[in-house]
Design a protein around this nucleic acid. Structure first.
Length: 445
RNA sequence: CGGGGCGUAGCGCAGCCUGGUAGCGCAUCUGUUUUGGGAACAGAGGGUCGCAGGUUCAAAUCCUGUCGCCCCGACCA
């Protein structure tokens, strides 16, 4: 993508309303524009990252055997009367009437609707297990939206719903989600720690939240710092092997890690003092097992092998997709701007032409652009007339992890520079070698 | 929803107390000179001062109402 043909409205000054670093950088890098309290337009650069994150979530959900579908944002009130939540949910739910005075709502979550789909089409244990998920916009009318996309009123969430014949199968579905989430966050360059959580109004006995450590996090967290070293890495896990999946969950949940909601000082004191840490975290996901709360209320039953009719065992599992952009920036930035992990970067690398208008430099940049694009690594090429310093500042702000710098002087020696945004390391090499290096880096992501 | 604050050019702000031609920096446009880490000079465009009433010869400024936004708190993916 040539910058002269793109839409990247970067700001040189800090917008007054943005108090935390991720919000500031998202506005300055031209990723989002606020339209109302807690409601944002996603400008091209932000939208690219949002889609990257969505794509990773889709890939990891489907790897775990979960089935994508898409439910609407608007829902009829009657479904929510069946579960009893139409009255319970309160002011946070946006209620709407259509022209026929029918009561509708903008969905804050989808347990009722997915249960309705399930009960209409599934009646046998033979159709289980089943996990249906979607990535859809939600609306929760927060009293005080803040921190940009970290706490918006409208937000994009992946929510998945599990249906199983009994508790043991449902707990495997829960564990499967935990492992798939760990892999999802790792691909985004995040360390998200599963922490035992309080169940809240959805109800249920088994629930974990996934927290990314950050000083600006809204939750206070207490943990044994050895959890931060745990990595799933490249291991191949068979999601259909309950024992194997459970073992991974045990590995990641044995060390003490809790939010203020479930914190137990007595248990925490048993953690060796050197490892005892108190900090703050951003919640980027939550998994719940809640049994038959909705299936019983809404008549979602299946027949078992011995002919009984039982309410299906359910769980619901969410990842805050739009919030993740904020969380990733909070976890990965410096005083010049964002530093995208390779897994989610909007462009794999940037090209800076030091002397726009120089025939050799222009030609070399265009060749690099074409070669990378042909290999599925479309770069962002700053072909503007701006001075070099300004181009570097823009590249640093928007956080592309790699930059190729091309100038007439280097070209005389046959080299360009490849620079890491993260470490600042700078290496001269031929344009061909730079392309190969970029390709090798992204082959891993 | 309680407490605090702010709405003046695309962005950041001054002017308001003490009413009298609406300003500054950045950005934008034109021209010239520049060009290897956020260029210099010259010129130009852009505002019903959030909105509605009121007071006044005269309102960005004073009064009343209203809408929007931000921060702290309680609540939440």
């Amino acid at each position: 993508m040539r910058l002269t043909r793109y839409f990247l409205p970067v700001l040189k000054e800090n917008p007054a309303e943005a108090q935390i670093v991720s919000h500031r950088y998202m506005l300055r890098a031209g990723m989002i524009k606020q339209q109302a309290a807690g409601i944002y337009s996603w400008l091209p650069l932000g939208y690219r990252v949002l889609r990257r994150i969505e794509q990773i979530v889709h890939e990891e959900q489907q790897r775990a055997g979960h089935i994508p579908l898409l439910m609407p944002t608007l829902q009829p009130a009657d479904l929510w009367r069946e579960s009893g939540r139409y009255d319970d949910y309160g002011q946070e739910m946006l209620r709407i009437r259509d022209r026929q005075e029918r009561e509708m709502l903008y969905g804050p979550t989808n347990e009722e609707m997915v249960t309705d789909i399930f009960r209409a089409h599934v009646s046998s244990y033979k159709d289980l297990p089943l996990t249906l998920y979607h990535i859809q916009w939600k609306f929760r009318d927060e009293m005080r939206p803040r921190f940009g996309v970290m706490r918006g009123r409208e937000f994009l969430m992946k929510d998945g719903y599990t249906f199983d014949v009994d508790r043991a199968a449902a707990l495997h579905a829960y564990n499967r989600h935990m492992v798939s989430y760990l892999r999802t966050y790792e691909r985004m360059g995040l360390t998200a720690i599963p922490m035992r959580a309080a169940s809240g109004p959805i109800g249920g006995d088994n629930t974990h939240e996934f927290l990314v450590l950050a000083q600006t996090g809204e939750s206070e967290v207490f943990y044994d710092d050895r959890v931060t070293a745990l990595k799933l890495g490249a291991r191949d896990i068979d999601y259909d092997d309950p024992a194997r999946v459970a073992a991974v969950c045990e590995e990641f949940t044995t060390l003490y890690a809790r939010t203020d909601e479930t914190h137990d000082p007595v248990v925490f004191d048993r953690v060796p003092e050197a490892h005892r840490k108190v900090g703050r975290g951003i919640e980027v996901g939550q998994i719940f097992y809640f049994g038959t709360k909705y299936s019983a209320a809404m008549g979602a039953t299946v027949q078992t092998a011995d002919g009984r009719s039982v309410p299906v065992e359910m769980g619901s599992h969410g990842i805050g997709v739009s919030r993740l952009l904020g969380a990733i920036i909070e976890a990965s930035h410096d005083d010049r701007g964002i530093i995208w992990p390779e897994g989610v970067t909007p462009f794999p690398c940037g090209i800076v032409n030091l002397k726009q208008g120089d025939a050799a430099a222009d030609a070399a940049c265009e060749a690099l652009h074409a070669t990378l694009a042909a290999r599925g690594l479309e770069p962002l090429y700053d072909d503007t007339e701006a001075r070099a310093g300004e181009k570097f500042a823009t590249m640093d702000l928007i956080g592309l992890p790699w930059r190729i710098t091309v100038g007439p002087r280097g070209l005389k020696a046959g080299v360009v520079e490849l620079t890491s945004r993260r470490t600042g390391e700078n290496e001269e090499m031929t344009p061909e070698a730079a392309v190969e290096r970029i390709a090798a880096i992204y082959a891993r992501h």
